[in-house]
Amino acid sequence: MTALLRRPAALLGLLLVATHLVVAISAPWIAPFAPTSLLDAPLEPPNATYWLGTDDLGRDAFSRLLWGGRVAMLVAFAAGAVAVLGGALLGLFAAHRRGSFDDVLMRLVEMKLAVPTILFVAIFVTGFGQSVPVLIVAVGIIQMMGVVRTTRAAGIVLMEQGYVRAAQLNGESGATIILRELLPNVADLMAVEFALRASSALLLVSALSFLGLGISPPTPDWGLMVEDGMALLESEPALVLAPALCIATLVLGINLAAEGLSDALGLDAARGGGG
């Protein structure tokens, strides 16, 4: 942790993420207005009452901005957790079992890489509806495949280690080896993966919202606010620029923190970033 705090870039990243988190959690108390209420004052320019003005339905843009990261962050962090937990278990199990399970799993991972992301989400959303749990699962599975690859690779290396060999000779069960010997040793990797997956999930969710496949109105959401504000870009640029800036700073913050974390842990952050 101290190693992390000694890096100014990582510190800045943590600060950005923390700020966004605090704002998102406290939005119901600090937002001056309810994010969906129509205030009968459409398209007010920024002023003392409406700090960022109002949109064309007469909703307070500043309040919406404070609320706008909640669902996207929930989806991104939950999807990141799904991806890292599911991916690590699958990857380590494959590393432990090898053989045909491993072969089939790696084919599935390859297959996911071959299915266009948009098609994957569209199938999910059409089949199960456009709700937050569905989005978490869909985005989580997309992000999971990359984690499977990195943790499997790490697991294969660990399987060669003496203490794992010893545990195997002692007749420990597969589950014990995976949970007790392998999992703790990839915890660092998982922490970095979580940050990377969350940031890439956040970008994906805002792109999906932009395409109309993600978070749906009336939920206040940055991606939707950008899409919604585009028609008014010339007259009310703040309605687009403010949420776009929020997405970018949050993703930037997570990435800086991930980079710092992986540097501090001596891991290679960029390698996991694909997929």
Partner: peptide
Amino acid sequence: QVLQETAREAGLTMALEQRP
């Protein structure tokens, strides 16, 4: 959203859900 908010003023509440 406007329909939902104005109906609420008259005591009629509803949730909204988007479908593809």
